[in-house]
Nucleic acid binder design. Structure first.
Lengths: 240, 240
DNA sequence: GAGTGGTCTAGACCACTAG
DNA sequence: TAGTGGTCTAGACCACTCC
């Protein structure tokens, strides 16, 4: 009792692989060494390496391609995008999304943001405010807060010129890959400013979504707060 | 190209195990045969049975207990309840929930419900309307629709006298275990009736949650529509 | 001590990809 | 044809539970 701390070999291998992922030794989209190579590198059997990779694949940190190899997961793939943007249209297929940058500035962490991201109040931050437009329809108004030290060279033009998900930009330009996130949802009434941007009346019911995103080893590195107009879109959730 | 349909041995074993679960040969909470027994029963190695059970465990259909055995998952366990009721209080631990039955009746399936549950419009249904009260606070107002043929003997008193989740009642009394569910969320304004029951003003923003629940083999067997008051509670979502 | 799930190995063979 | 991941086996041993 107390601390047995029995750690099977495959979990130790997994920890080594995770460390290589975290340190950026293998970049997103690249292949990692073959199971046989890793087995001889770590002096274990191929089956043990396999089990370690099984868990990484189950957590969507890598993906396998039979006959080709095992690759570091990336936010570039289509499939991944809808794991993080959970809005779907009431009918039809999801169309193109346009991202309009409203504001980009550096600021100090409030007590609230600091607590969420395990920083100190007053630490340097980057704040991005933007509107997501589906077709012609403004649907999401959101604020994104990032640690300033991690995203030192990030600029307004880099954000506004980037095509695709922000997470794609973060991983290709800053080596920070968002691995999972937790969201808290509430219903809220639109205020004056939000209503104008989303094209609704003040008081209109909106979905208020708060997100903390994590990189490897459960380190929180992003905080978002969004207002979703759900008149023609809904938020998907799966209970398993 | 076309239909390779290569099915590994362990998936065939998994299908056999699933059939036993579906048919109710092993009841929720009970142990299934040991890996060795299953291996000799199906004439395969223990490792192959193991891999089949691995997948069932990953899908939360069974759970393992080292030294004891493998058991059919159940909605009786505490841990499971919060997989399906995703409301958490803004601060503090979740308290007791009281379920007040408002209405119980048999009705015919509307076109909408029929489509969701893969039935025909006009098929017999059971409809349950109820209020979930957290402490003293009415938080959820919901309607539950079930196929009348599957839940033939279900009565208002059975529902109102049952303690714990409905899914618990369904699996113990009717042998129907809900395995997973999909939800669609929107923000909505409270109408007169809903506002009165939830103790808010008409027009107050609420979370509108629509759920389809599935039993084994992705068969839909329940449709719900709920209004959640999110003033002091929020809906948890995990993005992985 | 007997029985369960959990780990690890070594080797054979299959399915898929690419040069 | 060579190299990758994927499957399957057989056997040994470890960790845990219960009697």
């Amino acid at each position: 009792m107390g601390s047995p701390t029995f750690s099977p070999l495959y979990r130790q291998i997994k920890a080594l692989l995770l460390e290589s992922l975290r340190s950026g030794a293998w970049r997103p989209g690249e292949a990692i060494p073959s199971e046989m190579d890793l087995a001889s590198l770590y002096k274990v059997s191929q089956g043990t390496v396999r089990k370690a990779i099984d868990e990484l694949a189950a957590e969507n940190l890598v993906y396998r391609r039979q006959g080709k190899g095992t690759f570091v997961a990336t936010h570039g793939e289509r499939q991944v995008r809808f794991r993080f943007l959970r809005l779907a249209p009431d009918s039809g297929e999801p169309g193109a999304v346009e991202r309009r940058l409203l504001e980009f500035r550096r600021a100090r962490a409030s007590a609230e943001v600091a607590r969420m991201l395990e920083l100190k109040a007053g630490d340097p931050m980057v704040m991005i405010r933007r509107l997501l437009v589906f077709g012609e329809d403004p649907v999401v108004l959101e604020e994104v807060w990032l640690p300033g030290t991690l995203f030192k060279g990030l600029t307004a033009s880099a954000v506004s010129e980037h095509r695709g998900a922000l997470y794609n930009l973060f991983e290709t330009q800053f080596g920070t890959r968002m691995v999972r996130a937790e969201e808290k949802l509430k219903a809220a009434a639109a205020d004056e400013a939000g209503a104008a941007l989303l094209g609704v009346e003040p008081g209109h019911p909106l979905l208020a979504v708060e997100r903390v995103s994590y990189t490897y080893s459960d380190k929180p590195v992003e905080w978002r707060r969004g207002l979703y107009k759900t008149d023609h879109y809904f938020y998907r959730s799966e209970l398993g």
